[in-house]
Structures are given as C-alpha cells and as structure tokens.
Design a protein around this nucleic acid. Structure first.
Lengths: 195, 195, 195, 195
DNA sequence: CATGAATGAGTTTTCATTCAT
DNA sequence: AATGAATGAAAACTCATTCAT
C-alpha cells in the first residue's frame, strides 16, 4: 500500500495536531488510559509520526506539565500586577489565573489534577500566596487568628475545587469567582473597608 | 517453593494481608502503577492466591473505594452530632472526619485523591455541607455575601488540600485543623459571638 | 474453619458421585470446558477429594472412554445374538447397542462424540460390522453393488448421526431406529423376503 | 530478533500465513490444544502480530467456521444443479460438496468435525436434503418405507463418516463416493430404472 | 476420609516503541 | 515527512494440582 509523505503534510502542523489531541485525550481519560494509538488516531496520523516529534509518551506528558507550570508561574509571580495592593492584588492575581485556566481548560485539567507534578504546581502557588500574604496583609485580622500557611493551603484548595466545579463548567466567571473567594477569605477586612 | 498449603496459613489472614498491601501500594504508587505482582510480592504470596480472594484488581480497587465512601457517608451524615448546632456542628463533623482520615491514611489517599470515584465522594460531602448550612446557618453573615454552593465547594476544597498537606503529614491535629477551617470560613460569625 | 471428614461421608459414595458428575459435565460442556472445580462443585466436594480417587482429569476421562469402549465391544461382539442370522442379526445388534446408548446417554455422548478415542470405537464397530456382513450377507444384492467397507462405514455414520438426533432425543425408540436403519440399508433384501 | 518491520514484509501475506497455519493446526490438534503461540510460531511471527490481524483466537475460529458454513450453503443450495433431477441431482450435489471438501480438507475437518458450529452446518445440510427429497423423490419406494427426516439424517451421517474415512484419506474419489452413497440409499429406485 | 489454602506453569492480551520503505 | 508492518516486554488471569491439617 501507499506509504510515505502525504500531500499537504507539514511537519509543524502535524506536531501541533498531535499535541492538541494529546492534551484533549490526556485531560479526558488520563495519562494511563490514553494510548498513543488513540492520540494518532484522533489526529489522523500514524504511530511512527508521533515518534518523529516526541521522544516518548512520558516525555510529551512531562513537557505538557512543564509548560503549564511555567505559564502559571509567570502569571502568578508578576509582583506588581496592575499596580494593585493588598486584597486587590490577590483578587487580581486570581482573576488572571482563572482567565488562563479558562483559556487552557484541558491543559489545566492535566497540570492541575491529573499529573503527579500537580503537587509541585500547587506548592508553588501556595508559596507565592504566602509571600503575598506576608508582604501585603501581615496586619490583617485573618492572619491574627489563622496560621498563614494553613490559610494559603486552604485558599489554594478552594481554588482547586472551584476551578473544577464552577470555573471550567462555566458556572462562574473568572472575575466573579476571584471576588467570591476573596469575600470568603477576607470578609473581615473587606467589611472594615466597606464600612 | 513447594506447592500447596503453607505451614500456618489461614485464609482470612492472607486476604487481609493482601488487602493491606494493596491499600498501601495503591495509595503510594496509584492504581495503574500498582501491579498485582507487586501486591502479592509485598504480601509474600502468589498471583493465584490473589484471585482466590479478589475477582480482579479493578474490583478490589472499587471495593476499597466503596468502603471509603460508605464509612465517610456514615460519619458526615450523622445529623445530630453530640447535640451540637451551627458552626459547632460543622467543626465537630470535620473533627470526626479528620479523625477517620488519620486512622485510615492510605485508604483516604486512595478514596479522596486517587480514584475516579473520589469525585462522587466529594460531591456527597458538598451536598451534606450545603444541607447543614441551609438548616443551621441560613441567617449567617457569610451566606448573605457568598453563594451557599460556592461556600460549600470552597470549604471541601480546603478540606481536600489541608488533609493532604497538614493532616496526613501530622503537622496539624484533627481538632486543630477543624478549628482553623471554621475560623477561616466563619470568622465573622465567631467574632460576633466572641465579642 | 472446620476441616476433615464429614459426617456421613463414605469413600465409594464420593467416588461415584464425582464420576457421575464428571460424566454429566464432560458430556454437556466437553473435556476442555469442564474444569475440576466444576466437577467437585456439582458434587459438593472439594478439589483434593477428586485427587483421592482419580489420578488426574485426563486419566479419569480416558478411563471413562475405556469403559464405554469395552461395554460396547462386549455387546456388539456377541456373535450369536439370540440365535439370529443375516439382517436380523444386524438389526438385533443395533437394537442392543441403542438400548445401551439410551441407558448411558451421557457416557455415549462422551465416548462416541467428544473423545479423541471415539475414532477407535467407531473403527471397532466398523470392523465388527464388516465381519458380520462378510459372514452373513456375502451374497446379498447390496454387496454386489457396493464395497463392503464403504457400506459398513456408511452404516456406522448413520448410527452416529441418528443416535444423536433421534435416539438420545427420544424421538425414536431403539427398536424402531434399528428397524429403520435396516430398511434403508437392506431394503432390496427385505423386499425379496417379504414378497 | 530486532523490532519493527521486517525486510520484505507485507500485511496481507502475513495475515494469510497466519490463517493458513491456524487452519492447519486447528484441524490437526483441535481448538483448545492449539495455542496462539503455536500458530505464530509455525508462521514465524510473533503474538502481537496475530492481534494485528485477528481480534482473538475465538473470533478467528468462528470466522473460519462461518466461512465454511457459507461456502457449503452456497454449493448445496444451488437448486438447479446442471439441470439435473431426482437422484441425479442428489448425486451431483454430493459430488460438488465432496469436491469442496477435497479442496479444503483442513477447513472441512474444522467446520464439519471440530467446531460446536458443526451442528448447525449439518442441520442445514439435513434440511436442504429433506427439501430435495420432498420435491424430487416424494413418490420413491424408499420414502414409502422410511421417514424422510430419518433418511436425510442417515444420509448426512454417512456423508460425515465417509468424508473422514474415505474421501479425505483419498481412498475414494468425490464422484465415486457420491455414486456409492446414492447406490446405498436409492438402490431400489435405481434397479427399477436399470431394469 | 476430607478439606482449606496455596501455587507452578502456563495462557491470552496489550501497548509503547522501532524498523524498512 | 510519513507510513505499513512488526515486535519486546510485560500485564492480567486461569487451572490442574498439591500440601498441611
């Protein structure tokens, strides 16, 4: 049967196609339930083509996770976000992060929930948050009563769950969700400000 | 090794041994990375023996998850917990749950984090919590400002993360963790009470 | 759990029970689809008990076949059957054989259809039949036109199929079936006799 | 051996090779005694290659049987065979069938003797034969004395046995065997014609 | 005499990966 | 750049058989 390069084929296009389909499948079925044969089938390519662009299934998966981790780090660690401070800075950071999640829903499912590396991602978020809390909210009421680390871990836990149940399902918008979370966590500060 | 029955062997003991090793391995390496050969090896038994007690790896895993789900349901859904009400009831429920987690750390890792069924478990917890909020705290300040469902999802997210980072690592005790979570979520109510 | 000899248990009884259940299962599901675990389950006994009475599954199966072969040989090779001659002798032999089949339907299914050894059984029948034809019917019309061996093989083929479809299903009685077969095979002789 | 594609390899060739070796082995040793490892070994291929072309051993076996059944149905059910009638039609049909058997001896052994489905094949043949008898020979002498169904079953039994002992062993030619069978079954009609 | 408990030795099946074209 | 064909390595699972009690 006919073999060799297809008309209209183009390296970069094939690579992108494979990657997108891989993300989709990994996020839907998980790493182990996604076979290379599934990926290439949904990209209408063949298995050797996969190995033309990716060294192995595992390396592709890890690369995807690194990408997620990096892009997230970049967003969250921009310390002077639109010139905001205090709770506003947190709310703005969350909004930016949620927007990134909404724009990359499948990559988020992988990097935030599916991968072993998700642990590292969340640890990074927690330490970024701790940093903000320490620098921006050290005199707040909340932190007088609750351990900073616990507060940070708790908030990231909330983010984790609400992203899955309310954000990616489009029940709540990025802005709204960021606001609600701040309301939950900093109600005491906000009420003082508002009054 | 010779065939047939071993000296001092006993069915129930072997079954329990296999189950415990399976829980340990599943919780450490995950379902897919745990091979039946690993389980029986760590129990010093053979593969056929595994099938003597469990129909398949998948069924064992599901049974483990059902057990976790059931035991958790029982704890959390005892509506009149030690005659407590309002926030106290929530704090008491969390304490009981955290105690169960501490007593079954590996099963918790499986049923709360590893399994597909963990989704159902958390949904159950969320709806139990919503019920409590609706019946016990409907006039609270928090719920005036935040959507009940979002609050419940958020709190379960916090539980999820803090269990992993602070409870199972023994950084925080069940009682303390329950208290901190209530502090975070119901600071406004508590301060009113306290003042 | 309780082990050891049951009340009311008795060696010979258990052996017979096992054998009968084995015959039933072998005849229904075939040698390979019948597992020792099936046999002992349907006899309400255990696997080691099986090995108390039979050396192995294969040996039991072979013994069953030998028994069938021997009992059949005895019947068919009784040369002076009730003082009959010619076609009557054949008809009488068939009747006796069919009666044996009816009395041992499951053993027949095994020894005549299921076993590799069934080849030998049928060869034996063919050679017995050839002997009868040669000694009793050598001047018959049929044998003038048809090769004796082919006639014998054909008749045993008929016996084989009709036993399965008409005898063991009780559609036709042993006597009637023997008669019909003789009618088919020796019509020309019989009509001469009758006219 | 090195992995990947072999020199000069070709899918269809491998598939055919596997199928032929499977037929050979199934017919010689039976379904259960034939392991996939045997099939691929005799085709000088590996187990995964088997699954490249066949879903499972059982499905391959069933497909082989369907093929036999279909090809046989086609031959036997061609009602106007070379413009023949009556006994000639039967003789011609048998000849065609025997020729098919001779050309496909191993498939015949499987589909006619080894498979569970052989029951269905023979039932089909019986009902075809009954149809012919009813339409072409309803006034014959034989059918006055013998039940049509019994005659048909008997004849198919003869075919079954003689195919194995005389046809596939090449002791008798297709034409000769068909003739002999007709002689046995329709001697009375033929003698009338001949006289 | 009988059993509960266990295993050796296979069997089918899957899947990431690689060669020749 | 891409593919058809193939495979190594390992997975889950089965079953006749055997030991200790």
């Amino acid at each position: 049967m006919a073999r060799g390069r297809r008309v209209n084929s183009c390296g970069e296009k094939s690579k992108k196609l494979l990657m997108e389909n891989a993300i989709e499948l990994f996020s839907t079925y998980g790493y182990h339930q996604t076979k290379i044969s599934d990926i290439v089938k949904s990209a209408s390519l063949t298995q050797p083509t996969f190995y033309l662009y990716f060294q192995s299934k595992e390396i592709l998966f890890n690369d995807l996770n690194k990408r997620f981790h990096n892009e997230l780090t970049e967003i969250f660690s921009a310390y002077d976000i639109n010139g905001k401070f205090g709770i506003d800075l947190i709310q703005e950071s969350l909004t930016l992060m949620f927007n990134y999640f909404i724009e990359n829903p499948n990559l988020t499912k992988i990097g935030f929930y599916e991968a072993e590396q998700s642990t590292a991602v969340k640890e990074m978020l927690v330490s970024e948050l701790i940093h903000i809390l320490n620098t921006q909210l050290k005199d707040s009421n909340v932190l007088k009563q609750v351990d900073t680390t616990i507060l940070a871990e708790s908030l990231i836990g909330s983010v984790e769950r609400l992203t899955l149940t309310n954000l990616l399902t489009k029940k709540t918008s990025p802005e709204q969700l960021a606001k609600e979370i701040c309301m939950i966590y900093f109600a005491t500060e906000l009420s003082l400000v508002q009054s």
